[in-house]
Design a protein around this nucleic acid. Structure first.
Length: 260
DNA sequence: ATGGCTAACATGGTTAGA
């Protein structure tokens, strides 16, 4: 704990179903902060006691059936903000808080379904609102991490079959431009600051043995402000839980920072 | 070929994910 802060993000695709995997993973992964997405759990049913037993507590922003995020840590999470201030949204997709002097914004970016659909337009509008929010957050917090399921593969290197995916949702130009604008605010995709294996992905379709075929996408990201990114000592994707029985379709992403 | 898995809600089949 002294001086180092390890932050993880994981789309668990139902917290209830994945609680056991979460415990299994935490037993081997020494993390200090955890952002969850797709908890699909209302706040009244949030498994607070079970997570407490795993050493984690914090803020949850749940919803019935869909979406839902949580920001948990081994130490107190303060100054919690739910949603994007000034952007009314029925969907629970953002939770922010401060842990040991680092501001963390945990996001579940809309999927978008298909290019030119209503959901795609919602995704782009939502990303524009997020950009405005993060601009003010960066002005307030020099040490800022934006973590979560971005539902955008930043570049073709993050796509198993770029030709097949060209122009599709998750890789379209408009989505990548929106992500590029977030980077333009002064946010760094820390995963690419380090040497990584070829075909490093964070999501694999449940169908057609996509995981075994390494047919995935890297859509779960940890972005850090330049001041925080300068303190980043490691970043990785832990594919191990994706091998377990009845897994989430996403793997956790992890980054470690050296802080005061 | 628009399927294929998985989860929620419901208890059969739809909605949604990515």
């Amino acid at each position: 704990m002294s001086g180092s802060l390890t932050i993880a993000s994981w789309n668990v695709n139902s917290l209830k179903v994945r609680l056991e995997h979460l415990g299994q993973w935490l037993a081997t992964a020494p993390i200090d902060v955890l952002g969850l997405q797709e908890t699909k759990t209302v706040d009244a049913d949030f498994p607070e006691a079970q997570l407490q037993a795993m050493g984690l507590s914090g803020a949850r922003y749940g919803q019935r059936t869909y979406n839902g995020v949580a920001l948990l840590a081994r130490t107190p999470v303060s100054d919690v903000v739910l949603g994007i201030p000034g952007y009314p949204d029925e969907q629970a997709r953002v939770v922010a808080g401060t842990v040991r002097g680092v501001r963390v914004v945990d996001v579940y970016v809309p999927n978008g379904q298909a290019v030119d659909s209503d959901k795609y337009r919602y995704k782009l509008e939502w990303l524009a609102a997020l950009e405005g929010y993060l601009r003010t957050e960066l002005a307030k917090y020099p040490l800022l991490a934006v973590i979560g399921d971005f539902n955008i593969a930043p570049a073709d290197v993050d796509v198993h079959d770029p030709a097949a995916w060209a122009g599709q949702v998750l890789v379209s130009d408009a989505e990548r431009s929106a992500l590029e604008r977030l980077r333009g605010l002064g946010l760094v995709d820390v995963f690419r600051a380090f040497e990584q294996h070829d075909r490093s992905y964070s999501w694999w379709d449940y169908r057609q043995m996509a995981f075994r075929r390494k047919a995935g996408l890297r859509i779960d990201l940890i972005l850090a402000s330049t001041a925080l990114a300068a303190r980043c000592t490691a970043a990785r994707i832990d594919v191990e839980p994706r091998r377990w029985e009845r897994p989430s379709d996403h793997a956790p992403v992890v980054a470690t920072f050296q802080i005061e």
